[in-house]
């Protein structure tokens, strides 16, 4: 896969799930940029991700055809990406990936890992995510950076990191909010991509094993 295209997919996810910034969002949602994102999705689907290709063909990602405007993104985040409400779906991995004996809470192992990872790589996390380094925006930002730096490491990171999105999507889709499908679709793209990368890596490992034999 083209690493830059994958980087773009994660870059868009980063911008969509982080607190919306007006100018940045307007620039992202501009026709040329957004069509670049859609092209990247199509190209990844066509070249090597059948799951994503099926999703696109099924129309389930149609919500992505037209990006929400800034006000819609801001207001969705204000209702759902804030903590402590019945309709809260804060996109932080610790709140979704726990073993059954654990209580979902901020600051779980994924947060400690992401904090340690950033610091061992000499990266500085945005202050607003200092205590939630496993926020989807940070993980997606990290994936984008890695794809632009070392695609193999990026694939490794992505295949390990984003499996929690399945549970996050369940929470998103349950919201009583018309705009939720846009965010679900953004997540669906990543979930499909992760599935392809994981199965690709699995095949690679199997082939490797056969060759060794």
């Amino acid at each position: 896969m083209d690493a830059e295209k994958k980087a773009l997919v994660f870059e868009v996810a980063r911008a969509s799930f982080a607190p919306a910034e007006r100018d940045a969002w307007i620039a992202l949602a501009a026709f040329s940029t957004w069509s670049g994102y859609l092209d990247a999705c199509s190209s990844i689907a066509r070249d090597e991700c059948a799951v994503l290709s099926d999703l696109l063909a099924s129309g389930e990602l149609d919500a992505l055809r037209h990006p929400l405007d800034y006000e819609a993104v801001r207001s969705f985040a204000a209702r759902h990406f804030t903590g402590g409400l019945p309709q809260s779906v804060v996109p932080v991995e610790s709140l979704y990936r726990t073993n059954p004996s654990q209580v979902p809470a901020y600051g779980g192992p994924s947060a400690r890992y992401m904090g340690d990872l950033a610091s061992s790589m000499g990266l500085e996390l945005p202050a607003r995510f200092a205590s939630t380094p496993d926020h989807l925006a940070v993980e997606a930002g990290m994936a984008a950076l890695l794809y632009r730096s070392d695609a193999n490491l990026a694939d490794s990171f992505v295949s390990e990191r984003f499996t929690w999105l399945a549970d996050f999507r369940l929470a998103l889709v349950a919201l009583d909010d018309d705009e939720r499908m846009f965010f679900c679709a953004l997540v669906d793209v990543i979930v499909a991509l992760v599935e392809c990368i994981r199965s690709g890596r699995h095949e690679a490992v199997s082939t490797n094993n056969l060759e060794r034999k």
Binding site: Y113, S120, M121, G122, S149, L153, E160
Partner: peptide, 20 residues
């Protein structure tokens, strides 16, 4: 320069599995 991680940074990468 924020768009790319240098070799030193990449050397600091560890998988979740290794970290755990």
């Amino acid at each position: 320069t924020a768009g790319v991680i240098g070799a030193a940074g990449l050397a600091g990468y560890m998988s979740f599995d290794a970290w755990e």
